[in-house]
Design a protein around this nucleic acid. Structure first.
Lengths: 362, 362
DNA sequence: CAGAGTCATGTATGCGCTTACAGAATGCGC
DNA sequence: GCGCATTCTGTAAGCGCATACATGACTCTG
């Protein structure tokens, strides 16, 4: 690799000044065609590539947007669960990459594994013009400081952290509305009344919002429900979903009429557990998920769920960042709520084919 | 956002020199604890984040690795096919991100849509210490120039481009060996002799290698086969796979005994087409794929295929780059061949459960 | 208590590029 | 051929940080 050639090398080789070399790249039309060709030829000969760092330094902008996301890679998670969990991030990455590209930005991604040693934000924040952070990968406090200096948008998080309402831009999905509508459907359209919500042990504002939506629908329909999820799974995986289903079946001697799972992974796990117990879905027990992962369409019975627009979330994040970057700085924090769709499929009793996809929220 | 604070601001506010501020971040132990705290406090107050650009410029390294990949997003592709195609890139991205993180790097990703206007490589190359390129996203010529100055590794590509053997590092998978072994299995273990290979219309060295492996197995077994794929699908999608299967069934009045598809997508499409024709797989026609996408385990019959280690490919790419970055510069180009596994499932006649997974290739 | 040795901090320079500004070259009308 | 408007190109000053080197404050030894 030796030491890479610089503008100086190219300038010398083509007999011009470094300013002209720079102009050839920044603003080709401002250089006489003949000169330009000489410069480009020299650059080609030398294998010259402009240093993004120097460029960024001089023009105080990087042309890069960032994304911090959690890495769920757990040694004790089986590969399949891991795959599905990552699908979530993958979609956001793809959405962001496409939108970023449209606007001429590249995308820098960095995952934090839980309790990583040094702050990855600092690393990312310093090299990008703005970035998105998936909820709970970075302490809110740290973000607030940074967000004073460059655009930050939080994905899928809550605005309030305890009693403190943060000042970040947010993009979230209609967790509450989606889960409420799905629950309403189970109660009113399928006549189910003994519903059990499978939540998660770890603090998750998304899951909490879903549970509240579940509760709201129950209350609205006069269905009696405890103020707590029936089960809090240790992790939101298929294995834990299966365990939760087993626990619920054993608990009262008979299973509930519906298992309302906080995500698709657990719902699929529940499906398997119920099958092992020779219970039929949806006749004996209805099962629903949340997320809309592809797997949900492939399992039998097909999984009724609430689809999240993850790709769009990534795109919206970029749009928001770009707007912030080009615009009026003093604007108030924005909070975007993306609509979800309830996909009624077989596992709630709606038949093998997808019946209806109702857009909800926002 | 106003203008971001710099070392100078932090230095002034904490009453030290900029060198000390710098040291607090680069080498905390070299600063007295008390001073360090003062500096950090000032930084916190100001919302200071070190500029990655300046840092990179001064230390001539960015701490970032890059990946250029193709974006298959076609308006005329349905979302499902698109999903699966991207899985390929997603896996590589994940593999690279993890390995990069282990080594303290972040990952910069940029997709090229076919015939994008300006060179995305230049954009990426200038901001990273080294990068990987998925085959056919960037002209080889351009890469060779750049690779003189920083490490570049080509993923899944061929070493030769026409008659010109390039000088880049390569990582590929055992396309030839994998397809040969799978074909051998069909011929010898299942006794099939009329095999049709479904390839692709566009130039793809991977598909070509697979076809050659297919041919080699046929020849070795004395099976008579044309020197060309039976079909060249316009795109490697489910829809095209279905179309290919239909074409082959109609062509000679009777279907071949086996459809050997160049990827899983097309194989799944073929499965659907055959089902519509009331042909049973594998009894009437065997079908095989290549890639090992998750969908292959979910379709019925489950798909016999050759699994590619995409995640590992991403990891190996990073390892290779890191080695180049830290090591002896003058080394010859490396070419890594990753082994694949033949997953024998139901669609070739091996029964519903996965029978054996045979590792093939170096 | 002088001199050597440590440790903490400051000074000064350069990383490779962009970009005002100034200066040279070219074209035009007369 | 001259003066002036237009290009085109060069000069020079940073951008924010890392780091070699110099300096100053102490501690320790004899």
């Amino acid at each position: 690799m030796s030491t890479a050639p610089t503008v100086y090398d190219v300038a010398e080789r083509s007999g011009v000044s470094i300013a002209t070399v720079s102009r050839v790249y920044r603003n080709p039309d401002s250089v006489r065609a003949q000169t330009r060709e000489r410069v480009l030829a020299a650059a080609r000969d030398l294998g010259y590539v402009p240093s993004g760092n120097a460029r960024g330094l001089a023009s105080r902008s990087t042309g890069v947007l960032g994304l911090c996301f959690p890495d769920y890679a757990d040694p004790d998670t089986d590969a399949e669960d891991d795959d599905a969990a990552m699908l979530y991030s993958d979609q956001i990455i793809r959405g962001m990459e496409r939108a970023a590209r449209r606007h001429g930005y590249a995308l820098l991604i960095a995952a934090s594994l839980k309790g990583g040693p040094e702050s990855l934000v600092a690393k990312v924040a310093g090299r990008v013009d703005g970035f998105a952070v998936m909820a709970r990968t970075v302490p809110t406090e740290e973000l607030e400081g940074i967000s004073r200096r460059r655009p930050v948008v939080m994905l899928a998080g809550p605005r309030e952290d305890g009693d403190h309402l943060d000042h970040l831009d947010h993009i979230e999905v209609a967790n509450f509305d989606g889960q409420r509508e799905l629950t309403r459907h189970l109660i009113e359209d399928h006549g189910l009344r003994r519903l059990a919500f499978v939540g998660s042990a770890e603090e998750s504002p998304d899951v909490e919002a879903r549970f509240q939506g579940f509760l709201a629908a129950c209350r609205a329909a006069g269905v009696d429900t405890p103020e707590e999820p029936a089960v809090r799974a240790a992790m939101m995986t298929q294995a834990e979903g299966a365990r939760a289903a087993d626990a619920l079946c054993d608990r009262d001697g008979r299973p509930p009429q519906a298992l309302v799972c906080a995500n698709d992974q657990m719902a699929v796990g529940a499906l398997h557990a119920l099958e092992r117990r020779r219970l039929t879905v949806p006749d004996d027990v209805a099962v629903t998920g949340f997320d809309g992962i592809p797997l949900g369409r492939l399992v039998r019975p097909t999984l009724t769920t609430v689809r999240q627009p993850m790709l769009r979330m990534g795109e919206e994040a970029v749009e928001l960042l770009v707007r912030r970057l080009s615009g009026t700085p003093g604007t108030d924090p924005v909070s975007l709520m993306l609509p979800v769709t309830v996909a009624r499929r077989a596992s709630c009793g709606c038949g093998p084919e997808e019946q209806t996809a109702v857009a909800i929220g926002a």
